[in-house]
Simulated assay, not measured.
Amino acid sequence: MALNDKLGEEDAGLFDSEINLFIVSPELKGKGLGRKLMDRYVHFCKANGIATAFLWTDVDCDYSFYQKYGFKIHKTFKSAKLLQHGTGHEDGMVFYIVIDQV
């Protein structure tokens, strides 16, 4: 996990804030809670002059939520899991969002 943190946060200085461990339990998915949480975060950012946010994840996560919300891909990377095995394609993703565009 530490290597993924490093790879996912290499460009952290380009953004004003980071979303870390944004997780909704499987039992509660589909009830709009993720959207409510993200809306609350965006509202906080707007109220405090925070212009951008980023997060990193990998293909094991249901990252379609971020895409639907308006996040864009900043870059991809090979996760620690793949680096250890020396195989596969880039499976880590860094997403970002411009708060004023939400």
Score class of each variant (00 low, 15 high):
Ala53Met: 13
Thr57Cys: 10
Leu83Glu: 05
Lys68Tyr: 06
Gly92Pro: 06
Asp100Pro: 06
Gly32Arg: 06
Val42Met: 14
Ala2Gln: 12
Gln84Tyr: 11
Leu55Trp: 02
Asn4Phe: 13
Phe65Pro: 08
Leu33Asp: 10
Ser79Phe: 12
Glu90Met: 10
Ala12Ser: 01
Cys45Leu: 01
Phe95Lys: 01
Ser25Cys: 09
Tyr96Pro: 06
Gly70Tyr: 02
Ala51Ser: 14
Phe15Tyr: 15
Phe22Gln: 01
Val98Ile: 12
Phe54Trp: 05
Glu90Thr: 09
Thr87Asp: 14
Glu9Lys: 12
Asp100Ile: 02
Lys36Glu: 15
Phe77Ala: 02
Ala12Thr: 00
Leu37Pro: 06
Asn20His: 13
Asp58Lys: 00
Glu27Trp: 08
Ile73Cys: 06
Asp11Lys: 10
Gly92Asn: 04
Ala12Trp: 00
Leu28Gln: 13
Gln67Gly: 04
Leu83Ser: 00
Ser17His: 06
Leu7Val: 05
Gly32Met: 08
Val42Trp: 07
Asp58Phe: 06
Ala53Asp: 04
Arg40Thr: 14
Gly8Phe: 08
Leu55Asn: 05
Leu37Gly: 13
Asp39Met: 10
Gly30Ile: 05
Ile23Leu: 12
Val102Glu: 14
Asp58Gln: 00
Met38Val: 06
Lys6Ser: 06
Glu90Gln: 15
Gly92Gln: 01
Thr87Glu: 15
Gly70Cys: 00
Val59Cys: 03
Tyr66Leu: 02
Val24Ala: 04
Gly86Ala: 07
Ile23Asn: 06
Gly86Asn: 08
Phe71Met: 07
Arg35Val: 12
Lys68Gln: 09
Phe65Cys: 07
His74Thr: 06
Gly49Trp: 07
Leu28Val: 02
Leu55Gly: 04
Ala47Cys: 04
Val94Leu: 00
Thr52Val: 04
Ile19Asn: 02
Lys81Leu: 14
Ser17Leu: 05
Arg35Pro: 00
Phe22Ile: 03
Thr52Glu: 02
Asp58Asn: 14
Tyr96Ile: 03
Gly92Val: 02
Phe22Gly: 00
Ser25Arg: 09
Cys61Gln: 08
Met93Glu: 03
Glu90Val: 10
Phe77Arg: 02
Ile23Trp: 05
Phe95Glu: 00
Asn4Leu: 07
Lys72Ala: 08
Leu28Pro: 00
Ile99Met: 03
Val42Phe: 12
Phe71Val: 05
Tyr69Gln: 07
Asn4Ser: 08
Tyr66Trp: 08
Met38Arg: 07
Ser25His: 12
Ala47Asp: 14
Leu33Gln: 07
Leu82Asp: 09
Asp100His: 07
